[in-house]
Every structure is written in structure tokens, then in C-alpha cells.
């Protein structure tokens, strides 16, 4: 029965960034793919993201960030998840994130960075895969 549960995803905007076009398009695409999506709205702190993820019992966290603060904010999220013993909830991210920063972010526990122009179908596929593993 467990694998028939709808996949639950948190789509989050972290930090002061106000660009929410990408986050909303992804949220809608995941929803159209049959998932249950919680969109946080703008200006969430890493702690608020983690709290929401735990409260909503999501299987995947997707963060959109175009402000350049990714190297600071994304590792904060993975750290806080680990502190809550929830490091098994995978974090993925997209936005304006230079290639040079990917290795660092992946080392800090971010599972995948998607670049602008990625098809939503590819993201849907990856989220399904993560949910299945989890």
C-alpha cells in the first residue's frame, strides 16, 4: 500500500530572493504529475524550510534560488535536516547556480542541481526516483 501513496514534495524559496516563476512552474508540473506539492512562498529561512518539510512529512525538498546565496543557504538546510535526524529527505535545487559551485553543494549533501532550461519532465522523473529510493 505504501508505494501507492502520492509522492509529497516541498517546493521552497529560501532567503530574500523574490524570483518565484521557476518555483511555481515546477510546483505545478509536479502536481500535474500526480504529486502532492507544498509551496512555501517567498522568504523562508532554512529553519522554516526544514520545519515545514518535517511537519508535512515530505519525501523530497526542492529549493529554487536565484539570489547567489546558494552556497550559504543550501548547506544550512542539509545541516539542519541532519540535526533533526532527517538527512534521508533528499534536497534538490535549481536556479542561477554556477557550475563551479556544484561540487561544493553536492559535497554538502544536495543531491542534484538543475540548471535553467531543464525540462520539468526530467525533474518529475528524478523526484519519482528519489521518492522510490526513500
Amino acid at each position: 500500500m505504501e508505494n501507492q501513496r502520492r509522492i509529497r514534495v516541498l517546493v521552497g524559496k529560501v532567503g530574500l530572493d523574490g524570483h518565484d516563476r521557476g518555483a511555481k512552474v515546477i510546483a505545478q508540473a509536479l502536481r500535474d504529475a500526480g504529486m502532492e506539492v507544498i509551496y512555501t512562498g517567498l522568504r523562508q529561512t532554512p529553519a522554516q524550510i526544514v520545519e515545514a518539510a518535517l511537519q508535512e512529512d515530505v519525501q523530497v525538498i526542492g529549493i529554487s534560488i536565484l539570489s547567489g546565496a546558494h552556497n550559504h543557504l543550501l548547506p544550512k538546510i542539509t545541516e539542519l535536516l541532519a540535526a533533526e535526524g532527517a538527512e534521508d529527505i533528499p534536497v534538490i535545487a535549481g536556479g542561477v547556480i554556477p557550475y563551479e559551485d556544484r561540487t561544493f553543494l553536492e559535497k554538502s549533501g544536495v543531491r542534484r542541481i538543475f540548471s535553467p532550461g531543464t525540462a520539468t519532465t526530467e525533474i518529475v522523473r528524478f523526484v519519482r526516483e528519489l521518492a522510490r529510493q526513500g
Binding site: 532567503g15 530574500l16 523574490g18 522568504r43 529561512t45 539570489s67 547567489g68 546565496a69 550559504h72 543557504l73
Partner: peptide, 22 residues
């Protein structure tokens, strides 16, 4: 930067990681 645009000083907790970025 976003910190300025949202009316905080650079020493505000929400400014962390955002100072001088955009």
C-alpha cells in the same frame, strides 16, 4: 543587494549569505 531592497542592514540575521550578492 536584496538586503538593501528589503530594508535591512548588512548585520541583520536574514542578511546572512546575501550581502553584496545581486
Amino acid at each position: 543587494d536584496l538586503v538593501t531592497q528589503i530594508g535591512y542592514d548588512s548585520d541583520h540575521p536574514l542578511a546572512e549569505g546575501e550581502v553584496g550578492k545581486v
